[in-house]
Protein backbone atom coordinates (compact mmCIF):
# COMPACT_ATOMS: atom_id res chain seq x y z
CA UNK A 1 0.00 0.00 0.00
CA UNK A 2 1.16 3.51 -0.75
CA UNK A 3 1.36 5.82 2.22
CA UNK A 4 -1.08 8.72 2.03
CA UNK A 5 0.47 12.01 1.03
CA UNK A 6 0.93 14.53 3.75
CA UNK A 7 1.39 18.26 3.63
CA UNK A 8 4.69 19.76 4.82
CA UNK A 9 3.33 20.24 8.32
CA UNK A 10 2.27 16.62 8.80
CA UNK A 11 -1.38 15.56 8.92
CA UNK A 12 -3.72 18.50 8.56
CA UNK A 13 -5.11 19.74 11.87
CA UNK A 14 -7.57 22.51 11.17
CA UNK A 15 -7.85 23.63 14.78
CA UNK A 16 -4.07 24.18 15.18
CA UNK A 17 -4.54 23.04 18.76
CA UNK A 18 -3.89 19.45 19.70
CA UNK A 19 -6.35 17.91 22.14
CA UNK A 20 -3.52 17.39 24.61
CA UNK A 21 -2.61 21.09 24.38
CA UNK A 22 -6.18 22.00 25.26
CA UNK A 23 -6.02 19.79 28.36
CA UNK A 24 -2.62 21.23 29.24
CA UNK A 25 -4.16 24.71 29.29
CA UNK A 26 -6.65 23.49 31.89
CA UNK A 27 -3.95 22.68 34.47
CA UNK A 28 -4.65 24.69 37.60
CA UNK A 29 -8.29 25.26 36.63
CA UNK A 30 -11.55 23.50 37.32
CA UNK A 31 -12.47 20.79 34.87
CA UNK A 32 -15.66 18.79 34.37
CA UNK A 33 -15.17 15.15 33.43
CA UNK A 34 -18.11 13.20 32.06
CA UNK A 35 -17.53 9.46 32.22
CA UNK A 36 -18.96 6.71 30.11
CA UNK A 37 -21.94 5.67 32.21
CA UNK A 38 -23.80 7.77 34.74
CA UNK A 39 -20.90 9.39 36.49
CA UNK A 40 -19.35 12.85 36.41
CA UNK A 41 -16.33 14.25 38.19
CA UNK A 42 -15.46 17.89 38.85
CA UNK A 43 -12.10 18.99 40.19
CA UNK A 44 -9.03 21.17 39.82
CA UNK A 45 -6.69 19.64 37.25
CA UNK A 46 -3.15 19.16 38.58
CA UNK A 47 -1.73 17.06 35.75
CA UNK A 48 -2.31 14.30 33.24
CA UNK A 49 -0.42 11.76 31.14
CA UNK A 50 -0.59 10.31 27.62
CA UNK A 51 -3.56 8.10 28.56
CA UNK A 52 -5.36 11.17 29.93
CA UNK A 53 -5.18 9.70 33.40
CA UNK A 54 -5.67 12.83 35.47
CA UNK A 55 -4.69 14.09 38.91
CA UNK A 56 -7.59 16.14 40.28
CA UNK A 57 -7.87 18.06 43.53
CA UNK A 58 -10.92 19.14 45.60
CA UNK A 59 -13.07 16.68 43.75
CA UNK A 60 -16.81 16.15 43.63
CA UNK A 61 -17.88 12.80 42.28
CA UNK A 62 -21.43 13.02 40.97
CA UNK A 63 -23.47 9.91 40.35
CA UNK A 64 -26.68 10.32 38.41
CA UNK A 65 -29.15 7.78 39.79
CA UNK A 66 -32.92 7.39 39.40
CA UNK A 67 -33.20 8.75 42.96
CA UNK A 68 -31.25 11.90 42.03
CA UNK A 69 -27.66 13.12 42.11
CA UNK A 70 -25.37 11.62 44.72
CA UNK A 71 -22.31 13.78 45.38
CA UNK A 72 -19.18 12.46 47.10
CA UNK A 73 -16.40 14.88 48.08
CA UNK A 74 -12.84 13.67 47.68
CA UNK A 75 -9.41 15.12 48.40
CA UNK A 76 -6.94 14.34 45.60
CA UNK A 77 -7.56 11.55 43.11
CA UNK A 78 -5.88 9.84 40.21
CA UNK A 79 -8.66 9.31 37.71
CA UNK A 80 -8.24 6.43 35.28
CA UNK A 81 -8.46 7.79 31.73
CA UNK A 82 -10.02 4.60 30.47
CA UNK A 83 -13.64 5.52 31.08
CA UNK A 84 -13.61 9.20 30.28
CA UNK A 85 -16.11 10.28 27.63
CA UNK A 86 -15.95 14.11 27.65
CA UNK A 87 -13.87 16.86 29.21
CA UNK A 88 -15.28 20.33 29.76
CA UNK A 89 -12.76 23.04 30.71
CA UNK A 90 -13.96 25.48 33.37
CA UNK A 91 -15.86 23.02 35.55
CA UNK A 92 -19.51 22.06 35.75
CA UNK A 93 -22.22 24.73 35.24
CA UNK A 94 -23.24 24.50 38.89
CA UNK A 95 -19.80 23.60 40.31
CA UNK A 96 -20.68 21.68 43.42
CA UNK A 97 -17.19 21.74 44.82
Amino acid sequence: MIAPKRGPGGPANPSHLLPSELIDRCIGSRIWVIMKGDKEIVGTLRGFDVYVNMVLEDVSEIEVTPAGRVVTKLDTILLNGNNIALLVPGGAPEDLA
Binding site: R46, G47, V55, E61, T76, L78
Partner: peptide, 24 residues
Protein backbone atom coordinates in the same frame (compact mmCIF):
# COMPACT_ATOMS: atom_id res chain seq x y z
CA UNK B 1 4.35 23.38 44.25
CA UNK B 2 2.05 25.09 41.82
CA UNK B 3 3.38 23.23 38.82
CA UNK B 4 1.80 20.24 37.15
CA UNK B 5 1.59 17.13 39.28
CA UNK B 6 1.51 14.26 36.84
CA UNK B 7 -0.07 10.88 37.61
CA UNK B 8 3.44 9.49 38.18
CA UNK B 9 4.25 12.21 40.74
CA UNK B 10 0.95 11.60 42.49
CA UNK B 11 1.51 7.85 42.67
CA UNK B 12 4.99 8.34 44.12
CA UNK B 13 3.55 10.61 46.81
CA UNK B 14 0.82 8.21 47.99
CA UNK B 15 2.76 4.95 48.42
CA UNK B 16 2.34 3.66 51.94
CA UNK B 17 -0.58 6.00 52.58
CA UNK B 18 -4.22 5.14 53.25
CA UNK B 19 -6.26 5.40 50.08
CA UNK B 20 -9.68 4.70 48.63
CA UNK B 21 -9.70 2.76 45.37
CA UNK B 22 -13.02 2.96 43.57
CA UNK B 23 -13.87 0.49 40.84
CA UNK B 24 -16.11 1.08 37.85
Amino acid sequence: QGLAKTPADFLKSIKGKPVIVKLN
